[in-house]
Design a protein around this nucleic acid. Sequence first.
DNA 1: CGAATATTGCTGGGGTCTTTACGAATTGTA
DNA 2: TACAATTCGTAAAGACCCCAGCAATATTCG
Lengths: 386, 386
Amino acid sequence: MAGTGTDLNRLRELNSLSIVRALRGNPPSTVTELSARTGLSRPSADVMVKALVADGWATVVEPAANSVVGRPARRYQFRADAGHVLGIDVGGHKILAMLADLDGTVVHSTRVAVTPDADPASRLAAMDTVIANCLAETGFSGDDLWAITVGVTGPVDETGRTTLFTPLPGWTSVNPAEHLAARFDAPIRVENDCKLAAVAERWHGVAQDADDIVYLLAGIRTGAGLIIDGTLRRGYGGAAGEIGALRQVRWLGAPAHLQNCPGLPESVAPDDAAAWVFSAARDGDKAAKAAVRRYVRDLAVGAAALVLTLDPHVVVVGGGYSRSADIILEPLERELQRLCLRVPEIRASTLADEGVALGALRLALDEVDARLFTTSLPAPLAPPAG
Amino acid sequence: MAGTGTDLNRLRELNSLSIVRALRGNPPSTVTELSARTGLSRPSADVMVKALVADGWATVVEPAANSVVGRPARRYQFRADAGHVLGIDVGGHKILAMLADLDGTVVHSTRVAVTPDADPASRLAAMDTVIANCLAETGFSGDDLWAITVGVTGPVDETGRTTLFTPLPGWTSVNPAEHLAARFDAPIRVENDCKLAAVAERWHGVAQDADDIVYLLAGIRTGAGLIIDGTLRRGYGGAAGEIGALRQVRWLGAPAHLQNCPGLPESVAPDDAAAWVFSAARDGDKAAKAAVRRYVRDLAVGAAALVLTLDPHVVVVGGGYSRSADIILEPLERELQRLCLRVPEIRASTLADEGVALGALRLALDEVDARLFTTSLPAPLAPPAG
DNA sequence: CGAATATTGCTGGGGTCTTTACGAATTGTA
DNA sequence: TACAATTCGTAAAGACCCCAGCAATATTCG
């Protein structure tokens, strides 16, 4: 029964989707271009794209200045604003929401600061506020959202819970997916923050060329996210990448080398300690340099375990400490050279603290795509015209 | 240009392949059954299967005793003997070749013993002999082979070389793929033995139900093969799973606990030492039990690194020592419980020393399938009738 | 031997894509 | 301004595929 029995309707769907693919991510295209891009004949491409326009998936862009000989062609464009998705980073210090259209263009983002020891209820309330603001400031309603993804700390199981552990107090009892499902109709997904950051690096970050990626979160917390063969790997129970739980790897204590660096002035707040150490090391401070060396050495053991297990193309170093990539990357590479069989390329993230939210957006878009590309074209939820 | 432009021909191909899928792995089927299985109409299924018969991909099986009312239906069967594939395990102690038809049924296998310190040339010669015998004893020629896969020790790069390292002396300079390419036209692939064993466990072993598998080779060598999301993961440079190279993991020295167990009689050959220790431990020998405990403790650290990285569904323990799974599995699980966040199921392999060759067969079959299911149906290389 | 049953084979209908062809719109040149 | 050249838009014809339904066929059971 699960057979791939394929009839004519399916063929038409396939070709319609083929046209959608050809439209997306390209500048407004003529029918001739679409025909060339899809391999379909020009009349077919014409019929398809006209149907898409009728259903609200595409629009006609007026010819514009055309300096070429011949009748000017109509240009069609995918209606990226037919729907929107939301990506949310629920972090220890901040909550960040990003709203993007179907092309993945970020339309708006909102953030609010929270304290790491906030209780779950107030954290969820802050999340609600951030979302509400993001929608209010752009004039959208919850019905305009086609998918929502939330990034949280700790391994996430199928249901969206972080049962194994999480640094956020009380968070294990919370299910953000259920919480949001009561407010929004869109499909909601909860995912681990490191995993989302990894996705973001492949989407808009420094690993766009790689299919096998290890993302290292280097910050007050240490963690990892894995992309294998181009897709995010969650593991059977959603706990892939949690190599830090292995004591031999020393990730848990690694940041302490920086936090407790001898010579650290009392005036420096704990959150700024690492930055101070990196800066001091850059200035040649002996103790700071030793602290960085010890930190990197511990970080490298876990990284080596990941690298040896997966043999990735690229290792991306992200997280708060990646701002000091200039003094981390080189010793990290040296350590990996010592520990690994084949050393991957090591690159520093450039997504600052937006990686998790961006990755959440990408996953939400994937959700939309999956529906779009498998279960035929859904009824056009979009208004008939912009 | 890479567009999915889909015309009628493609539709027909798709449906033809759909029929092939419905035929394979099923007993001889009537057109009505095929129609039900594929979702196609009966006339369509009829036309398709007739075309397959004409091209040599299927045969008609005569009605046989039919005890049901009505006109007896013709039964069609996939011609598994239209082609064959070869899987070869080039190990330290033996070389094993297996010949299978397109259904994966093993038709014949040949093996020969070699010494671990044999030089590359004689090892390749032994491989040639094993293949030649396997073909001669079944009456096939090299032209009947549609794909060949060779399993070797050590990480294999894209070209089929084991450049990073291998325990076989001189083997880094050898390229078995090139060697065989001079003799056979079929596509040839070389792969790491642990990876192939992992594939075999999912195909015919104890992990058929799992999509995320860590295969542990527990023997005189220690190694791993990874299956993630149902497919073998090689890593960017083919060195995935080589966690044993990390010193912290202690895999290199782990078997020594068994080999050098105090109380080991001088009369026991090195190759039989582990078996003796396991047996002694089973009989309650204190020293032997301690040696096993130490071995498992070391094995578990690397296994934990793999498990924490990938969060697999199942860990399969294979290799020579898996014959003593009865006294390894329980302490291994206990150790993993201690070291991991979520402990996967742990199972002992039952494929004895045929896992690598079986996995090689599966990969060769995958190669055939890939051609069959992407680039349309190739011209029937098969003779028109059995 | 005839009725019941299930399969086989065939024909027409509906649908899709492609090819071919021709009219329409614009540019550049005489 | 008129005309050729070029490209786009669209319509008609042809080929192909899938499906529904009906007549013919082969077998079992009474």
